[in-house]
């Protein structure tokens, strides 16, 4: 399956990209699974506070991700 991941704020600096497409063998998995996968790919993510949205709605750790979903990795911004 194919998913699209978008990175915001500091997370785009860490991954050095605003978005990427991922091709995965699994046919469905949870946000928690994706999170740990991404945190081993980009280890700095482990020290960052962020939330994950699936198809423009905030998701919990056990929310299911399906083919063609759009995932957003969103950190809080501090600046003002």
């Amino acid at each position: 399956m194919i998913i699209n991941i978008k990175y915001f704020g500091l997370l785009a600096d860490i991954t050095k990209k605003k978005e990427e497409q991922m091709v995965l063998d699994e046919s469905s998995f949870s946000v928690g699974f994706l999170k740990s996968k991404m945190e081993s790919a980009y280890q700095e993510l482990q020290n960052t506070n962020y939330s994950v949205a699936v198809n423009q709605a905030m998701a919990g750790m056990d929310t299911n991700i399906k083919d063609q979903d759009i995932i957003a990795f969103l950190p809080p911004f501090a600046g003002g």
Binding site: F8, G9, L10, P76, F77, A78, G79, G80
Partner: peptide, 10 residues
């Protein structure tokens, strides 16, 4: 609430 980071905002 609003917050900013570089070219982005919430």
């Amino acid at each position: 609430y609003a917050s900013i980071y570089k070219f982005e905002g919430q």
